[in-house]
Design a protein around this nucleic acid. Sequence first.
RNA 1: GCGGCUGUAGCUCAGUGGUAGAGCCCUCGGUUGUGGUCCGAGUUGUCGCGGGUUCAAGUCCCGUCAGUCGCCCCA
Length: 438
Amino acid sequence: MSKVFKPSPISGFPEYLPEIRRVEQQWIDHIRAVFESYGFCNIETPAVEEVDVLMAKGETDKEIYCLNRLQADPDDNSDARLALHFDQTVPLARYTAQHFNDLVFPFKRYQIQKVWRGERPQVGRMREFYQCDIDVIAVDNLPLHFDAEMPAVIYEALMGLNIGKVQIKISNRRILIGLLESLGIEDVISTTRIIDKLDKIGVDGVTAGLKDEIGLTDAQIASVLALSTIKTRSAAEVKDKLSALNVENEAFQQGVDELCFVLDYLSSMPEDAMLADLSIVRGLDYYTGTVYETNLLEIPEFTSSVCSGGRYDDLASSYINKKLPGVGISIGLTRLFSVLLEHGYIKAAPRSPADILMAIPSEEKRGLAQETAQALRKRGFKVELYHAPQKIKKQLSYAEKKSIPFVWFPPFEDGQSHEVKNMDGGEQIATTVESFTK
RNA sequence: GCGGCUGUAGCUCAGUGGUAGAGCCCUCGGUUGUGGUCCGAGUUGUCGCGGGUUCAAGUCCCGUCAGUCGCCCCA
């Protein structure tokens, strides 16, 4: 006997049993339907991009998986270096630049594909996962209304998944950047990184970090905290609290105006569904204005965002000599799904999509069973034909295991009628192909 | 990439130096053409891998690989 290679799950590369995968597929169907209902059209880009494309923005910390052939000659440099994409925004930028003349702007597209990151897996963090992106890209100018449309679309998409309450948190990077500029703080990246952790490490942790790591003065820290602790859904409150800081800075003022516009636009969203949270800044460098994060209110111990995004003034300048501002947001489908699954919020679907299992009473009746199954399919039922004229007990047990709700018996003898058994209650009645209903 | 914990049946795990176990799952049976419950029988293992200590190692020691949690970062 040949030695078996014992399979084991690959960490960070999730796979599910059919009854769970069906739920994931239903989610994808729903999200897609919502995206399309707002006029977003779909594209699919290759799993790989050229390394130069992925690295154009200097994203070196993304743990990119490179692609090379097992049999490749190490000295052969004839192939372009390819790597798996780590998000869908960079491929979108490349796509938009490449097909610029054939696209209609503002270009509204959605993309539901897998992305790959070679990071260490943890709860809610995979190495292969689905992202469901929507983005709008315009030429030169992109109206702010789109910044407000993003959360509205996402909220509708998430609500249809029956995952309880979610909260979309909104901020605008210009406000903090403007403040830091006016305070003369130079190490913007490290500073924003610390502020971004406010929810996790608290005011004391942020204070300590800003003091010890960046060397900010108490007065600077006070200003930064006064800004970043603002949490409200009221545009007026944002305006009041921020003007109290007396910041003379153009970017700051623009950011405040933009954020207030978005908040006003979304003011009809349900309580808790939306919140301005000025501690949200996002690590990604290419966001320049509005930024979003989304938390699951049902699972407070899971604090990471399940849906994030933002506005970028100029994403495609590495690939085309035009200014293409955009705004986008992405549902971290695999994260969302795996975390909810882990916490017992996802109910497995039936193991089989079939409505009816067509029993085979005997070899002589196989043809009849086949014809009956086909006739029922024509009426819109999903019908699985059992594979052999085995004991009825086995055929029923099979239907039971696959959660197929009905078992259909063609007549055992000529002249008898068809019968259908409801597996839930167990009752069995005479029926016909034309009259059967679930 | 750095630190803590864990590797025993398909799954969840017990086994603290002396013959490899339990529950679940799975297969078969409990008589004519009817599932679930119940009853009975059965299959399943290089104890992650390599070395060491010992009369004897799943158990102790060293290494290694994998998993997992935290850090970094992120959907």
